[in-house]
Design a protein around this nucleic acid. Structure first.
Length: 338
DNA sequence: AACTCCCACAACCGCAATCAT
DNA sequence: GATGATTGCGGTTGTGGGAGT
């Protein structure tokens, strides 16, 4: 039995909003607010619309200070950088672009920006990257750049990435070795990801870690390959005024290097004064790829008891050994900004 | 002018998280 | 703690308009 519908489908209007409906909704909310109840709002406002539809219309179109029209180059760069680091978490990306909505950015990415990026690559390599997230390009570029061995986890990309990108597993044929020179040229010289401050922090070692997570930088992948979001506390919805830095601290990489072991991440939030708050919000992501669970030493612990400033973290990252093989034997750190 | 195709954007849908009782 | 209601998110679909034939 499915869940009860949020409204009487037979008696609600669907499809594009008329100017009259817009006016009604706008005037009602400006006068009364949403009242914290979107479901009841349409009736009160005299609209034959579903509450969800009203909410969407307000948030994406009618709300004050919504910016419409062309995206700037800066906005492009921010979107690309954040997409590369956290994947398709449009609400978080939107929080960094005042006046833009998640829907707007999502549409822009799907219809223009993605193609724009693909257009930077020669046709010969296009077919090979078409179904990979941007991070895979990072991976390939770092792989070439650092003359590494076959990357581990190549067969696991699909497990850590949105299914959106991937054809059925049987059609995947990617070793990490094919035709990367064009990709490399594009990523290092032209790829917008590398043209701003945030992007400069995407070191090869971070790319490596990123590839283990796919495009979901904050995604926990269970043994069945499914992916669940980490909890941010509260309602789980990250609001702009709660933005901060997140740090992922990876340990026990030795176990991962042979694809057998596991690792855990300790996720901490930085407060607005850019201090790492070890005792603050903490969620632990546990994941492993086989029955060999990580040791208790790493499992369920939150050992980062120091307090770092963001500059210190940046230093740690920039000074981190970029050699992937080395990193497998070291602790790795990555952070992303949102 | 009529038709088809394509694209951009708006809107919908289902799901998961959270809240309220 | 259980359950239903509500909210927010991200993927997908629908729609309208412009371009091409």
């Amino acid at each position: 039995m499915g869940r009860a519908p949020c409204c009487d489908k037979a008696n609600v209007k669907k499809g594009p909003w008329s100017p009259e409906e817009d006016t009604k909704l706008k005037e009602y909310i400006e006068k009364n607010g949403t009242g914290g109840n979107w479901i009841a709002l349409p009736q009160k406002a005299g609209l034959k619309r579903c509450g969800k539809s009203c909410r969407l219309r307000w948030l994406n179109y009618l709300r004050p200070n919504i910016k419409h029209g062309e995206f700037s180059d800066d906005e492009d760069r921010i979107i690309c950088t954040l997409y590369a680091n956290i994947g398709s978490r449009w609400s978080i990306i939107a929080a960094q672009l005042p006046g833009r909505t998640d829907n707007d950015i999502k549409n822009y990415w799907n219809t223009k920006l993605k193609k724009k990026l693909m257009g930077l690559l020669p046709p010969s390599s296009n077919h090979q990257i078409r179904n990979k997230p941007p991070a895979t390009l990072f991976h390939e570029s770092s792989h070439l750049h650092n003359d590494h061995q076959n990357p581990p986890f190549t067969s696991s990309y699909r497990d850590f990435s949105p299914s959106y990108y991937y054809p059925s597993p049987s059609t995947i044929s990617f070793t990490g070795l094919e035709s990367t020179s064009a990709v490399m040229a594009s990523t290092t010289n032209n790829f917008p990801y590398f043209q701003n401050q945030e992007a400069s922090l995407v070191s090869p070692s971070m790319q490596y870690y990123y590839n283990m997570f796919g495009s979901e930088g904050s995604c926990s992948t269970s043994s069945d390959g499914s992916c669940s979001q980490i909890s941010h506390g509260g309602r789980g919805d990250v609001k702009q005024d709660e933005m901060g830095f997140h740090l992922f601290h990876h340990q026990n990489f030795n176990n991962l290097s042979n694809g057998k072991g596991g690792f855990d991440d300790h996720h901490h939030e930085l407060s607005n004064n850019n201090k790492f708050m070890p005792g603050g919000e903490t969620s632990i992501i546990n994941q492993w790829t086989s029955s060999e669970k990580p040791s208790d030493q790493y499992f369920g612990q939150t050992p980062l008891l120091m307090e770092y400033g963001i500059e210190e973290i940046k230093q740690m990252i920039s000074g981190h050994n970029n050699n992937i093989e080395e990193n497998k034997r070291e602790e790795g750190m990555m952070y992303y900004y949102y």
